[in-house]
Amino acid sequence: MSAATIATIDWRHDIEAAAQRLHARVPGFLRETPLWKLRGEALGLKARGAEVWLKLEHLQISGSFKARGMMNRLLANDIPASGAIVASGGNAGIATAAAAQALGVPCEVFLPVVSSEAKRARLRALGAQVVVGGEVYGDALAACLERQRETGALLTHAYDQPEVVAGAGTLGREIEQQGGMPDAVLVSVGGGGLIAGLAGWFEARSRVVALEPERAPTLFNARAAGEPIDVDVGGVAADSLGARRIGAISWEITQRHVRDALLLSDEAIRSAQLWLWRELKLAVEPAAALPLAALQSAAYVPREGEKICLIVCGANVDPATLA
C-alpha cells in the first residue's frame, strides 16, 4: 500500500466501522478493559498533581490489544478453508489463534526463536499449528509468507494492514468513551500497529508519544534516516517489540500525528515491569512497562496537572520471571 493511498484513509471512520463490526459480529469476544485513574504520587512519581490513567489492556482476551485488530481483519475478509496464517513475536499469533478459534477456522502461527515458551504454550492451547524458526520476527515473517503462498490462507499481519490498525484504534475510542480526552497517551512501539491506531483516532486532539527500547529503535531510527529502515533488534522486550522495520501505515500516520519518539533502556523497562508487579500486582510483559518506565526514568516529564494515559498493552509473560 502506497503512502499516498494510506494518507487518503479516514481512520476515525474506519475505527468506528471496526468497533461496530466487532460488536455486531462477535458480541462478547472482546472485553472492555478497565481504565484505572491514579494520582501520579500513587505511582511513586514526582508528577506535580498529574493524573495517570492505566489502560489495563493486558486484561484483553488473548492477553493483549492485538485481539482487536486480528479479529477485525478476519471479520472484514472471506476466510478460505485453509484458515488464517500469521507471523508474530507471540501476541499477534495468540490473538489470531483466539479469533480463529472463536470463528471455528484453522490457524497457523510462525514464531522466531526469541519468542517465549509461555506464548508458545498458549498458542498450542488455542489449537494453533505452531512453527518456530528464525532469529527474529522478520525471519518468521519470511517463512510465513512462503507458506501462505502455498496454502492460500488469509494472512493477518502483526501490524501493517488497514483492518489491523483500525481494530487497534478501537482501543483509543474506548479510552475516550471511558474517561474523556487525555492530554497525552504513552504507548510502546514495535512494528507500529497500536500507535498507528491510537494516533489515527486521537489525531491532534491528544499528544501520542512513541516509546521504544534502546535496543529496538525502529521508529526512532527511521525518523533519523527520514524513511523506514531495517534496524537490529534485541533486549528484554524483543519478543513483542522485535520488528526490524516500522510498518508503512504506522510510518505515514506517525509522521502526521506523533511528535515525540523516545528511547528507554532495558534497565528502566525491567524496573518498571517489576514495579508494576510488586506494587500493583499487575503481571505484564516488558513491552507493557515502557509507558511507566518513561515516567519513572523522566524520559517523559508531565506538565503540572496533566492527564496521561499509559497503555498497559500485554500480559503474555511467564510469572516466574517476575520473582
Rank of each mutant, 00 (worst) to 15 (best):
C144M: 11
E203M: 12
Q296C: 10
E16Y: 00
E176D: 01
A299C: 07
I9C: 10
Q255Y: 02
E32I: 05
V317Q: 13
P106M: 12
A225P: 10
V231E: 07
R31D: 01
N77V: 08
G235P: 08
H58S: 15
E285D: 15
A50Y: 00
A24M: 04
R122E: 08
A225K: 05
V130D: 12
L264P: 01
A118Y: 15
H58M: 13
P217A: 07
S64K: 09
R205W: 05
L111P: 14
A243D: 15
D260T: 09
Q148C: 00
G93L: 10
E279F: 07
A3W: 01
T96A: 14
E41W: 04
T254V: 10
L103H: 08
W251H: 05
A320K: 15
V208K: 05
V233H: 01
T321R: 07
E174C: 01
G83E: 13
G28P: 06
A272M: 06
V130A: 15
I175A: 02
V114C: 15
I308H: 04
P228V: 06
E306W: 02
S297Q: 08
L263A: 03
Y300N: 00
L75S: 03
E135N: 12
A97E: 09
F65H: 13
I175W: 02
A19D: 13
V233R: 05
P213M: 00
G133F: 06
W36H: 12
A121E: 12
E41S: 11
I308P: 00
Q178H: 00
L111Y: 11
I229Q: 13
G191A: 05
G192D: 01
A153K: 00
V109G: 14
I269E: 07
G179T: 05
V301L: 15
R149Y: 04
V113Y: 13
L123S: 11
A125F: 06
R173I: 04
M70F: 01
A142V: 01
H13L: 12
G242A: 09
I229C: 12
D318A: 05
L322C: 08
L276P: 11
R207T: 06
N91G: 14
T321Y: 06
W201L: 11
S62H: 02
G235H: 06
S265C: 01
V312Y: 08
F29D: 02
E150Q: 08
L194I: 09
A248V: 00
E176Y: 00
T151P: 08
D139Y: 06
G127V: 12
V301H: 12
A143Y: 02
R215A: 13
R21F: 02
Q177A: 13
A7S: 14
D230L: 11
A287M: 08
K119C: 11
V26W: 03
P27I: 04
E146A: 07
F29L: 15
S64R: 11
V209C: 12
G69D: 10
E108D: 15
V165C: 05
E41N: 11
L310T: 09
